[in-house]
Design a protein around this nucleic acid. Sequence first.
DNA 1: CTAAGATTCAAACGAACGTTTGAACTAGGC
DNA 2: GCCTAGTTCAAACGTTCGTTTGAATCTTAG
Lengths: 259, 259
Amino acid sequence: MSDQKSNHDTRERILDVAERLFMAHGYEGTSMRMITTGAEVNLAAVNYHFGSKEALLREVFRRRLGWLNRERLQVLDALESEAAGAPLKPSQILEAFFGTLLRIGEDSSLGGMTFLRLLGRTLTEPAEFIRTFFASEYAEVIDRYKQALFTALPDVPKAEIVWRLHFMLGAMSYAIAGTDVLRVVTGCELGDLAGEGTADAVDDPALARRLAQRLMPFLLGGLRAPLPLGLESRTFSLASSSEDDAQAQTPNHLQEKQS
Amino acid sequence: MSDQKSNHDTRERILDVAERLFMAHGYEGTSMRMITTGAEVNLAAVNYHFGSKEALLREVFRRRLGWLNRERLQVLDALESEAAGAPLKPSQILEAFFGTLLRIGEDSSLGGMTFLRLLGRTLTEPAEFIRTFFASEYAEVIDRYKQALFTALPDVPKAEIVWRLHFMLGAMSYAIAGTDVLRVVTGCELGDLAGEGTADAVDDPALARRLAQRLMPFLLGGLRAPLPLGLESRTFSLASSSEDDAQAQTPNHLQEKQS
DNA sequence: CTAAGATTCAAACGAACGTTTGAACTAGGC
DNA sequence: GCCTAGTTCAAACGTTCGTTTGAATCTTAG
């Protein structure tokens, strides 16, 4: 009751409410009045503390992405220095990149499932300033991990790695953002399917752990899939020779079945 | 110059422009005035012909999804009757589901890349009426394909199949919707990476073909990835015994590396 | 030609939007 | 006490939103 609580209190309360509402209704679908009413502050408070609605959104993300970016770079640094020059295994890289992200969902002080879902959903927002913001926020980390994958998979065309990184980002982004979408589409609750009964488990931190356990093998399987026809140029070695990354190397007969 | 062209002309022109603008700016980010100005019709034309902005969006999708749903069911029917009771191969099911979709991108009369990107982007729209609409439009097809995958992979827990179907939908949705996102993030144009030089190839029908060739192996690899730890309950047989679906069955050591 | 229906048009509607204003209130230092 | 800087407040700003209106125009059939 002593320290200047009002400042911090108002700012944080606005950020918390905005985070939740942006997640539920998107950027354009969330009005200043919804935010200020939910945070029980005056309408002018957002513009006073943050300057504008756009700046508020940026601050909502900056508050969380700082930790994420730092952690991602740090984990990758640790892996690379531990490997002492030897190329990393793809599984290690994916675990560092996606595992770090999914750990946010387990820790409410890092944003929890709310921020995780907001992040996944906002990546597909069409507004220009949002794209620009994410491009600058993500550029360094994405580039580091891209290079790490290039080194880990020297015989795979770089274009193919970028495509698959794109696919992996999509699978994860959609998976965390659209849990309710799938629930509606499939007509059954994910928790039930997974054997855990709690109905409103969307915000459950345990969901993040289960999601990670499910998502990681899927992503790794996709990353190490056989190359598309016409691209197995060199010796075919998507999977490295290290023990746990060994994988069958069967050609795929998926393409041109009926077109 | 005889048939009542004005009606058809106005309606189609509105739908075409709305399709493009919804794709570029999202539902909330596209105003009636943007649409009517772009289509060179009066502001009241949309409400006259469609009733409301929401109804317009629904009609934009109904115009295209009819073909898609019909084709997807038809292709699956053909496969199942051809198999004469034998379970389908997962690769066939994925080819039927995602190949049919991606063929839209190659044919501008089915909507082309514009509709494809619109579809991918709209799946993550937060507006409630959009979710409801897609749930009803997709329910039947998704259920049929889900059942087909259950049959094709009898030894895989159904929950796991639903999760991976979810992941696959996400990878594809994001891949077609967010090509420019990746371009910004990675700082390099996808066409260049793929070796094809054309700069503004986002709307190129050939992109759909390339995308399909890249996406399908990734999805299949993810679908057939080893089960997460603690779920290899029965005999481990994610991959069927048929020739082209054979796959190595190595356990994965991804989980619990450092948490 | 004319009456009837379908379509287009300019103009306006009320509501909601993000933002700004200027006064009121709340601290802490002198 | 008063002053100053930081914060909150009610009220209004101008703009844009989706929608509606009623007259004008076009199309078609009798």
